[in-house]
C-alpha cells in the first residue's frame, strides 16, 4: 500500500479521477449523435499533434490539443457541408492523422518509445504541470458538458427542431467537436490515444443498458468512467504488474459485459409487465383442466389486462374466470 503515497502515484490517481469523470460526458453526446467513433478519429489526428510537439521541442500536450481541435472542426465542417457523411469524414482524418504522426516522428528522429507514451498512455510518468492541465481541462469539459446539457441534448437529439427553436446549430456542433478534442488530449496520458475513445464510449454503452433517461445515462456513465479509470489504475499498480492504460479499458469493458445480460433481463421483465390492451377476447374460451391455481407465487408472470390480470403460461394468457381459467 506504500505505493499509494508516492508522488507519481498521487498524480496518476488525480489524473485518473478527472479523466474518468470528463471523458464520458462528451462520450454521451457522441453516442447520442451516433458518432461513437469520433473520439477515435480525433485521437488519431492528435498523434500528428504529439509528433509536431516532439519535432519542435514544445509541449506535446498543447500541440496535440491544437491539432485535435483543428481536426475536430474539419470533421464537423465536412459533415455540415454534406460533401461526405460523418463516417467518411472520420475515416479520412483517421488515416491522415496516424500517417502524419508516424512520418513527422521519423523526421524528428525521436525514439519510438517517446511516441508510444502517447499512443498507449503513461499515466505514472505524468508531470506536475501536466496534472494541472489535466485537472483544468477536465473541469472545463465537465462544466460545459453538464451546464449546457439542455442545449447540447436538444441539438444532438433533433437538429432541425433545435434550429427552429432558435439555437445556433453550428456553434453547438463545433462546441461538441472541440470538447471531444479536449477530452481526447486529456485522456491521452491516461489510456493513450489509441484507446482514448474507449473511456468516452464504453461507460456510456454500459450505463444505457440500465437507464431509461438521458440524465441518468450521463450521471451513471460518469460514475462508471471514474470507477474504471481509478480502479484500473489501482489494479495495475497493486495487483498485477501491467500497464494501467489497457487495464482501465479492459475494466470498463468488463463492466459492460456484466451489465449487458442484466440490462437485457431487466428490459425483458419491464416489457412483460406492460398491461395488455383493453380489447375484449374474441370468444369465451374456457380451459378444460388446469394443473394448478395461478397466484402470486405460481411462477407465471401476472400482467394487467383491463380490470383483471392475465397469467402468462407457455405462450398463453390465462385469465381467472370464476372457478376456471379463460384463454385471453
Amino acid at each position: 500500500m506504500d505505493i499509494l503515497t508516492l508522488d507519481f502515484m498521487i498524480r496518476a490517481m488525480i489524473a485518473a479521477v478527472f479523466t474518468g469523470l470528463a471523458a464520458p460526458v462528451v462520450g454521451t453526446y457522441l453516442v447520442q449523435r451516433r458518432l461513437s467513433l469520433m473520439g477515435d478519429g480525433i485521437g488519431h489526428v492528435a498523434v500528428t499533434g504529439v509528433a509536431l510537439g516532439l519535432l519542435t521541442g514544445t509541449s506535446p500536450t498543447w500541440t496535440a490539443i491544437a491539432v485535435a481541435i483543428l481536426g475536430a472542426i474539419i470533421i464537423e465542417v465536412i459533415r455540415e457541408q454534406g460533401h461526405a457523411n460523418g463516417d467518411v469524414a472520420l475515416a479520412l482524418l483517421f488515416y491522415g492523422g496516424i500517417a502524419g504522426g508516424v512520418l513527422i516522428t521519423s523526421v524528428a528522429g525521436q525514439s519510438a518509445a517517446r511516441l508510444q507514451e502517447y499512443l498507449f498512455g503513461s499515466i505514472t510518468t505524468i508531470s506536475v504541470p501536466d496534472v494541472w492541465i489535466t485537472m483544468a481541462l477536465a473541469a472545463l469539459v465537465i462544466l460545459i458538458g453538464v451546464g449546457l446539457s439542455p442545449q447540447l441534448f436538444a441539438v444532438a437529439q433533433d437538429q432541425e427542431f433545435a434550429q427552429v427553436a432558435g439555437l445556433n446549430i453550428r456553434f453547438y456542433n463545433v462546441l461538441v467537436a472541440v470538447l471531444a478534442a479536449v477530452s481526447v488530449t486529456v485522456a491521452m496520458r491516461t489510456v493513450g490515444l489509441l484507446l482514448v475513445s474507449a473511456l468516452m464510449i464504453v461507460p456510456v454503452a454500459t450505463a444505457q443498458q440500465l437507464t431509461r433517461s438521458f440524465r441518468a445515462t450521463l450521471v451513471a456513465s460518469m460514475l462508471l468512467g471514474v470507477t474504471a479509470s481509478f480502479g484500473g489504475l489501482l489494479f495495475a499498480a497493486l495487483v498485477a504488474d501491467v500497464p494501467p492504460g489497457p487495464t482501465i479499458v479492459l475494466l470498463a469493458l468488463a463492466c459492460f459485459l456484466l451489465t449487458w445480460p442484466l440490462g437485457a433481463l431487466l428490459r425483458r421483465r419491464h416489457r412483460q409487465k406492460v398491461p395488455f390492451a383493453e380489447i375484449d377476447p374474441l370468444a369465451h374460451d374456457e380451459i378444460e383442466e388446469h394443473p394448478h391455481e395461478h397466484g402470486e407465487n405460481c411462477g407465471h408472470p401476472a400482467v394487467p389486462h383491463g380490470d383483471h390480470v392475465d397469467y402468462l403460461h407457455d405462450g398463453h394468457r390465462h385469465a381467472p374466470h370464476g372457478i376456471h381459467y379463460d384463454e385471453h
Binding site: R33, R34, D158, V204, R212, S213, R215, A216
Partner: peptide, 12 residues
C-alpha cells in the same frame, strides 16, 4: 423520436 442514448418522454 429515439436517438443513440435512452431518453425519457419527459426529457424530450
Amino acid at each position: 423520436a429515439a436517438s443513440g442514448v435512452p431518453t425519457s418522454v419527459w426529457e424530450t
